[in-house]
Nucleic acid binder design. Structure first.
Lengths: 332, 332
DNA sequence: ATTGCTTATGATAGCGCTGTCATCAGAAAT
DNA sequence: ATTTCTGATGACAGCGCTATCATAAGCAAT
């Protein structure tokens, strides 16, 4: 018998199976797992041996029910692929996993109905907190969260009326900052390209309002699919534009590819660009391409880590502005 | 009283609270949630009203314990940020979420010990399957999975001795394909840059073996940090090299940035490049930059969706090779 | 009237743990 | 010798559900 854990039923061994084998009560086995200091060394050794021999893996589902603690957090993002939200998920899970929390991940795909379903699905697993990108799109979603009586962290925004805690930055001000920079550069004809999700729209609003307030003609806005390829052709729809704010770096890089084809991209500094381009996200890639991409840098992983902290500590500041940074390189 | 669900204790309402309010037994409420067809329409309406009034959210933790079905799958990836694995996670969760499964996500961070811990943590939540990138790095990890008696899907590789199911492609052959292409192009001095994780190493091996078998001098191998910035400087360490296979597109783009600085990058076609570069992953960005990036295209999302299918269907082919494609553009 | 079948509902017993007391030595303090 | 405390262990109930079997009513067929 090479595998001591063979034979016996197909079923996973339980606490009491281990207990029986070690000649102790099951509560003692439970303590060996959770509070080993309360168990005498010899007993502990005996129990640990039995656990090894049986290949015991604790059943956290049962544990969670009994203790009313699931040690899990629900995380809801619009999408995880090709997205800066992955940084946030990484940040929060790096903080949470070592503490024994598991991350239950759900994607809304920018769909309000799916978001509500995912929220309900998450909540029925009784996570100890919910971290989401943005705010619930519907009143139903908000009510669900408000009644859950667990920490809720909204991220990537600074909602006026948050459900509970917030870790984000001011998308409106990001738009303002870009517009201000373009204007200081002497650009006259501004445009905004990107999605029309809530955060993109806030950026657009800030961009738009500041341009108007500075006496410019209203900027143009082009709503694009979420993949960058559409932005390659965007330039054709923006005649006369000399400065573009892209809602994310992927769109910015796509747009620059279009400019290159049109012969409107220089390898020189921003001042030499016929059309200035600024993105958002500060993808590593933006630093590497030529001309290098100017961008609004936001710290996606810091948002995740901060959100994690907010789920762990009740009390203290519940609204954290992580800010952003206008990083100027050669594109704009 | 605007909120009917207020007052009453702080505790979340249970099945039997709903039952009492609706004047039925709790099992009937359970049926309304799971098997509504078994309940008479009027009874169902009464129960649904009570659920709404109380703001009832089913407790899947209890349900899972009672039914021995958690409706969850554990997913283990090395990392999720800036990574093509995000596509795989998206693919599998798009397939699984509509079926009522939740994704429990864990990251190993390319650390064998952390991987083992995460595997044990996942397993203790009794997922109905585990999907992971690659194979467990340790024997302990393998044993854990083998004893779990649930579907296990290893992805992004085609291990010789899989634990259960596999959805991936042949990394060795990808290396061979790139070497073959370089050689056909008349390149003489090959190099490989990238990480030394198992998949990267397989690619290197194929690349190396094929170069040798074709009579070339042994390719050089440069092991880099996981972020692309290191690859910018890589060229200095590879004098005389005229063709580079980067283990992923980010490294390839970083390397090209270095070449550009060194004046070794042309906007022309591959034949005009002093140093040919081929990446792996087929990032959208690679298409957009100039010169456009040649790459091994792998379908990360298809891997995820296939893995999901493999967890749902026992029986049938358990080893699926999704293949790869050498996509030739201007960089090599 | 009896049997059999279907539909709608309920009673009961757990699922595998943990919280909350007990219990019982043995040591220390009175 | 008695009390008190500490350390180690256990008994027991119960977390909120579901599986399983039972029950009752209604109705058709014998």
């Amino acid at each position: 018998m090479t595998d001591t854990e063979t034979s016996s039923s197909q079923l996973a061994p339980t606490l009491s199976a281990v207990a029986k084998r070690a000649g102790v009560s099951s509560i003692t086995v439970s303590r060996v797992v959770r509070l080993p200091d309360l168990v005498a060394p010899e007993t502990r050794a005996r129990v640990e041996k039995a656990m090894r021999e049986l290949g015991y893996v604790p059943n956290l589902v049962a544990g969670a029910l009994a203790s009313a603690k699931t040690n899990s957090v629900g995380v809801l993002v619009p999408t995880i692929a090709n997205s800066i939200f992955a940084d946030t998920v990484q940040g929060l899970s790096d903080k949470l996993e070592p503490l024994g929390y598991s991350v239950i991940l759900a994607q809304s795909r920018y769909d309000a109905a799916r978001e509500d379903r995912m929220l309900a699905a998450l909540l029925s697993r009784r996570p100890e907190a919910i971290i989401m990108v943005g705010s619930p799109a519907t009143e139903d979603g908000k009510r669900l969260l408000r009644h859950a009586r667990i920490p809720i962290v909204e991220t990537w925004e600074l909602p006026i009326d948050p459900i509970d805690a917030v870790a984000g930055f001011d998308n409106y001000e990001a738009g303002v900052a870009v517009a201000r920079h373009f204007i200081a550069q002497g650009r006259q004809h501004l445009a905004f390209i990107g999605g029309d999700d809530p955060r993109g729209t806030r950026r657009w609003l800030g961009f738009h309002d500041h341009a108007l307030a500075s006496g410019l003609r209203p900027p143009r806005r082009l709503i694009l699919e979420r993949n960058a390829s559409g932005s390659v052709a965007a330039h054709a729809n923006l005649p006369g534009v000399d400065a573009v704010f892209a809602a994310n770096d992927a769109h910015a890089i796509g747009f620059m590819a279009g400019l290159r084809k049109a012969g409107l991209l220089r390898d020189g500094p921003a001042s030499a660009q016929p059309v200035a381009v600024i993105g958002l996200g500060d993808l590593e890639m933006g630093r590497l391409i030529s001309p290098s991409l100017s961008t609004i840098s936001v710290h996606g992983d810091a948002i995740g880590r901060t959100a994690a902290t907010l789920t762990l500590e009740r009390g203290g500041e519940r609204r954290i502005d992580l800010g952003f940074e206008l990083v100027l390189r050669d594109s704009g």
